[in-house]
């Protein structure tokens, strides 16, 4: 009996030590990426290429999802609001939900599964085929040359994608509420403009999406760099990227919201 207890305890201890070690490794990796990111700006062409892969290629999914999220919000909001004779407030509802929460969060979730997983798979495969080792052999720093541009490409793309998601969503809400249902157009926009505050809602949404961008790209790059150099290793790392970054987005969103909107 005591043998078994000891074994279980040792198992728990092993997990905790491993987890903390990995966390420390990830933080060092993150700091190293920041410290060696000068290359990403000196050779900005590299970063532009990564903005293309992370940002431009995510545009379609971001725009289509934003449009549908806005349209569904308007339909559902209208259903409830018109019971209280406040159908014009549907613009406020759509715009506030999108700028404060849904824009940054859903765009970041899509970004994690569209661009984050691709980054992890790419870097994991580069490692499995020993391209990263080959770079080190040629005295090229893989963190400066491979990781840095991807990191900055993702961080720069994320706020822009989230802003586009919100704008397209508001447009979708406008299509449903004004064009389809026939809510008064002037009231739709003016109530929205009265309720949405630039500093409180728009800027806070942008800050959120920046934080999510840093979190998602850092997680994706670390998982790729840390992946065991096998087919299973890369597939496991890709899965972990999506799961971990989605959880990180939702957790960070709660913390940021609690700080930003505590007085309201």
């Amino acid at each position: 009996m005591p043998e078994r207890v000891l074994k279980n305890l040792r198992g728990i201890g092993h997990e905790v030590v491993n987890g903390i070690w990995r966390l420390g490794y990830a933080s060092r990796f993150f700091l190293l990426t920041l410290a060696r990111s000068a290359t990403s700006f000196r050779r900005f062409g590299l970063t532009i290429k990564e903005i293309y892969f992370a940002g431009v290629l995510s545009l379609i999914i971001i725009i289509v999802s934003g449009l549908f999220v806005g349209m569904v919000l308007a339909l559902q909001g209208y259903e409830t609001l018109q019971k209280y004779g406040a159908a014009e407030a549907v613009g406020t509802l759509v715009a506030l939900s999108l700028t404060r929460e849904l824009g940054p969060v859903v765009a970041a979730l899509l970004f994690a599964s569209r661009a984050g997983s691709a980054m992890t798979a790419e870097i994991g495969l580069m490692k499995a085929t020993e391209q990263i080792t080959a770079m080190e052999m040629m005295a090229v720093d893989p963190i400066a040359r491979v990781i840095g541009p991807r990191f900055w490409g993702g961080v720069l793309s994320m706020p822009l994608l989230a802003a586009m998601f919100s704008v397209v969503g508001v447009f979708g809400g406008y299509l449903i509420a004004v064009v389809l249902i026939g809510v008064d157009e002037g009231a739709f926009w003016s109530q929205m403009q009265n309720a949405v505050d630039f500093r409180q809602d728009v800027v806070n949404g942008v800050i959120k999406s920046m934080v999510f961008g840093v979190a998602v790209t850092a997680i994706a790059l670390f998982e790729g760099y840390d992946a065991p150099p096998t087919a299973e290793g890369v597939s496991g790392a890709t899965t972990r990227t999506v799961v971990t970054s989605s959880l990180a987005i939702l957790g960070l969103d709660f913390v940021l919201t609690a700080f930003m909107f505590k007085g309201i």
Partner: peptide, 16 residues
């Protein structure tokens, strides 16, 4: 397009 979206958020959706 991203910067334009931010401007729309600030001026058309919000009340900057």
């Amino acid at each position: 397009a991203g910067i334009a979206a931010l401007l729309v958020l600030a001026l058309k959706v919000g009340s900057a």
